[in-house]
Design a protein around this nucleic acid. Structure first.
Lengths: 262, 262
DNA sequence: CGATAGGTTGACTAAGCTCAACGTCGGTGG
DNA sequence: CCACCGACGTTGAGCTTAGTCAACCTATCG
C-alpha cells in the first residue's frame, strides 16, 4: 500500500522537461479568489471581503508550467506575482561560474516573485518540479488597487514580503549554524508542516525534488543528503524509499534537529 | 527572551556599554528627511517631493543606542522601522540551544526591522556595534500615509523589503555554495562597496565587528576568519591590522571570491 | 534493449573545526 | 605608574565532518 500511495501521487522523476519557450500569455481561465480553496493560505489571506472581491474583479489569468520548465528566469522583467495553484516550484540563483544555489521550494498557495519588486527584474529563476498551474497576478494592478482608495492590498503584500524575509532568516540560521543532519531534519519538519497546512498527511509524503536539489538548498552535497536519510532510517526516525518519506518519530527528528544541545 | 538587559553581549573594544534600560521614547530632536544628508540612501530615496514633505510632517524622533546595547530583541513588539543615522548595527537570530547566527550588518541610511511587519513582532535582535543614532519611524504612520491618498509610500516600503529579500538571497548563495576565503572576500567587497556609497574610502576602512561576529555572519568559526585574513595578507591582497583593513588588490580579491571556477 | 537519470554506499581526502597557547591592547585599581 | 585583567586576535596541531571519486543498483524512456 505504500506502493499504491506512491503511485497515486507519482508524476515526478518522469517528465523529460519540455523546455519549449511557452507563451507567457494567460490562459482564458480567470481566477476567482473568493471561491478558491486556497484562499486561506494564499494572497487573499487577511484581506477583508471587499478587497477579495476587487481581486476577483481583476480576473487575473492562470498559466500552466510543465515539469522542468522555467516560469521566469533571473533578469526577466518582473510583472506578475505568481501564486501556486497546484504542483511545486524551486527557485534558484546562479553564480558567475555556474554554481547554483536553490533558494526555496514553493507549494500550493505560496507566492513567487516578490524579489522582483526591488528592481523590476526577477532576482531568481523559478522552475517547476512537476506539472503545475499558477495564478499570474499583475503587480501593477495590486499597487493600483492600493493607490485608488482604502484598500489593504499593499499592506497585505508587505506582510507577505516580510514573511519571506523571515523565512530566509531561518534558512540563514540553518545554513550558518547547523550540521548536515540538523539541516535535513529541519527541512523535513518544515515540509511536513506545510503538507499538513494543506490538508495532506504530515507523516507520509512524496518529495518533489531530487537529492541534488535538496542538497543545494541545504548547502550540502547530494551524497551527504543521501547518507543523512540513511542514518535517519537506521535510527528508526523515518522510512525512506527514494522520494517517499514516512516519518516514524517526530520527537526524534526534532531532537536530531537540535542535536548539538546535549 | 526578555529585554536585552541580559548580561549577554559585551560592547566593543571602546565604550563600556551603558547597559541601563534606556527609555525607548524618542529624543526631543525631530527629523527632517528633506534636509538629511542620507536622503538618497535611506527611506526617502525614490519618493517624490510631496511624500518627503509628508515624512517631514510626521516628525518622527531619534534615538541613541550605546555600543553593545540592543535596540530591539526577537519577540519585541514591532512598532518602528529604524533608520540608521550614525554607527553600525548587527542583527541576529538565536536557536533554542543558544547558538547565534548574525543575519546582517547595517550602516548609515539602512533600515532595520522590516522582518517585524509579518507578525507584528521582531523576528531578530538588533545590537549596536558602536555608539549609534537612529530615526524611529512609526510603521503605522507609513501605512496611514499610504491609506489616505495617492502616496507612493507603501510602494517604497515594498521596494525596500524586496531589496532585503534580494540581499538575503545573496547571503544564502554565500552560505550555501562558497568556501571560507570566497565568503570573506565577498564580505569585504560588499562592505567596501557600501563604504564607498557613503563617501568613505572603498580601499581603507575599519571593521566595526569582531572576528566572531564576522564568522557567525559567514557561517565560519572565528579562527577560520582570522586565518583567511592572514592568507589574504600573505598573498598581498590586503593589509590587516586587527580591525583596520587596507585593500591592496581589488581584482585579486574579486578573483578570490570566484576562486572555485576551474 | 541499451541509455540515462536518480539514488545509495564505500574508501579516501581535505576544508574547516576544536583545543590550546600565546600576544596585544585598553581600562582599572592598588 | 605599573600590574593585572578581560576581550580580542593569531597561530599551531590534531581531529571530524562533509566533500570527492567511483562503483553499483533501479526505474524509466526512447
Amino acid at each position: 500500500m505504500t506502493l499504491a500511495t506512491a503511485k497515486s501521487i507519482r508524476p515526478i522523476r518522469t517528465r523529460p522537461a519540455i523546455r519549449q519557450p511557452q507563451p507567457a500569455a494567460s490562459l482564458p481561465l480567470k481566477t476567482q479568489c473568493s471561491t478558491c480553496h486556497l484562499k486561506d493560505l494564499c494572497l487573499p489571506c487577511g484581506l477583508n471581503g471587499s478587497d477579495v472581491y476587487s481581486l476577483d474583479a481583476l480576473g487575473f489569468g492562470r498559466r500552466k508550467v510543465a515539469a522542468g520548465e522555467a516560469m521566469f528566469a533571473e533578469g526577466d522583467r518582473f510583472q506578475y506575482i505568481h501564486a501556486v495553484r497546484t504542483g511545486t516550484f524551486k527557485t534558484s540563483l546562479a553564480m558567475a561560474d555556474g554554481r547554483e544555489q536553490v533558494s526555496g521550494f514553493y507549494m500550493a498557495g505560496e507566492l513567487l516573485g516578490l524579489d522582483g519588486v526591488a528592481s523590476g527584474r526577477h532576482a531568481s529563476t523559478a522552475v517547476a518540479l512537476e506539472d503545475t498551474e499558477v495564478c499570474a497576478i499583475p503587480y501593477a494592478s495590486l499597487t493600483e488597487m492600493a493607490a485608488t482608495g482604502g484598500s489593504e492590498m499593499q499592506q497585505v503584500v508587505s506582510r507577505l514580503m516580510s514573511r519571506e524575509i523571515v523565512r530566509e532568516h531561518s534558512l540563514m540560521l540553518l545554513l550558518g549554524s547547523m550540521n548536515a543532519e540538523e539541516r535535513l531534519a529541519a527541512f523535513l519538519l518544515n515540509l511536513s508542516q506545510r503538507m499538513k497546512a494543506r490538508g495532506f498527511s504530515a507523516r507520509e509524503f512524496h518529495l518533489r525534488m531530487s537529492r541534488a536539489e535538496i542538497g543545494s538548498y541545504l548547502g550540502l552535497k547530494l551524497e551527504t543528503v543521501s547518507r543523512s536519510f540513511s542514518a535517519f532510517q537506521r535510527h528508526g526516525l523515518l522510512d525512506v524509499d527514494k522520494r517517499h518519506i514516512n516519518i516514524l518519530d517526530f520527537d526524534g527528528l526534532t531532537r536530531a534537529f537540535e542535536s548539538r544541545v546535549h
